[in-house]
Amino acid sequence: MGHNDSSYANAPLEYQSETGRLNILGFWIFLGAEIVLFSTLFATYFVLHGRTAGGVLPAELFDMKLVLIMTFLLLVSSFTCGIAVHEMRRGSTKGVVIWTILTLLLGAGFVGFEIFEFFHYVHEGASIHTSAYWSAFFVLLGTHGLHVSIGIFWITGVLFQIKKRGLTPQTAAKIFISSLYWHFLDVVWIFIFTAVYLIGLGGLL
């Protein structure tokens, strides 16, 4: 099928099978669709910004410390994820596993703090029913958090496959693709903390 795999002998492992190459390209295109998905949630958020219907305001609830912690957890996890792929290209299965587990732990920490944050807000009277603004907030952040959670389960599954089969063109492509997903989610978070928290905490809109 298609091009001769031997011409890719010098490429990183994840590019050495045709399935791997096609899957990687296909996933980049899927990320283009995800950019649009999140942009629609952002558009909704901006249009509904400030429409709190006389209820509790975001500036009253947002906590800068919490946001900084969550941001750094995710940022560091993106770094450890990058190192995991670097280790993969060095051919070190052990390196991949260790740095990936670190990534997942940091991600789980992020999700944990986010769940705590959501419970706290609901307790303070800001839930998805309260007003259009809070609906937009919870769905934007919740969609991102759900993506991260799904990613944790997905990458755990891939780790099991690495344990069983080691680093092959197929398993390498899976690690690479899941790393693309993970980095992408950090990119989305950059826009979330800018558009939601910095604007909210700084009273910029």
Binding site: T44, V47, L48, R51, T52, A53, I128, H129, T130, S131, A132, Y133, W134, S135, A136, F138, V139
Partner: peptide, 14 residues
């Protein structure tokens, strides 16, 4: 289904 207020007439929806 879940009572959010994106497109509603009340609670600031549009």
């Amino acid at each position: 289904l879940f009572g959010s207020a994106f497109f509603t007439l009340e609670a600031g929806g549009m």
